[in-house]
Amino acid sequence: MILQAENLEKHYGGKNNLTKALNGVSFRVAAGEFLGVMGASGSGKTTLLNCVSTIDSVTSGRILIGGRDVTAMSGKTLARFRRETLGFIFQDFNLLDTLTGFENIALALTILRRPAQAIKGQVRDVAAVLGITDVLPKFPYQMSGGQRQRVAAARAIVTKPALVLADEPTGALDSQAARALLESFQELVRTRGATILMVTHDAFSASYCHRILFIRDGRVFRELARGNESRKVFFDQIIEVVSLLGGDGHDLR
């Protein structure tokens, strides 16, 4: 198991107006799995991602990543743990506009103080998988949105992290770019054995996952595995669950 979350609780506010953003969430992610987390706005899915990514702390419960309990770690070890074990992909790409594509990807390795001579080859390899070799010498403002997000994905994956956390990665992309990105994710899982946890509220994006966790009111509402179904069938199943989720369901496609 790469990730084990046990009975996560996250409370906001004081005695009188207590909000339980997470109310006893438990789940597991196996190595090489592509897991989706869906839920309406306010369901607690972003809180869940923040807690797993060690950016936020839980009120109670345990999160084990690669067998290590991140809830017990101090600030200094957390930063180290984050750069060695986790990879991040954000909705708005978050590339450094002053660095080229190559440098943006290499940055994740230089922060880890990997030997300089090994860096070039590793960046080239991951760029080839994601089909962005051509844009490596370009600056972010010279790239399309899809290219930028794939550079961001390359940055997240180049360190070979135990777990890649993607927060609405297709949110700022058009459908064609989104499809290309999701296919690259599948490629990464297949060829590099990456483990990806993706938060999304887009059923189309979710249909590329192996398994989906639906979150409502801070709890796991439902779980859906694709198994051997085609993506089309899986997509219809997702739409079905989404309509059951209710609430802000209308902003789920």
């Binding site: 450094l96 506009d97 002053t98 660095l99 940055l107 230089t110 922060i111 103080r113 300089a116």
Partner: peptide
């Protein structure tokens, strides 16, 4: 050179040149 690909060196240099 090698120091360019070490820590945040390349970020700092790019910051300066930008």
């Amino acid at each position: 050179s090698k120091p360019y690909l070490r820590g945040l060196n390349m970020f700092v240099l790019r910051q300066l040149s930008s």
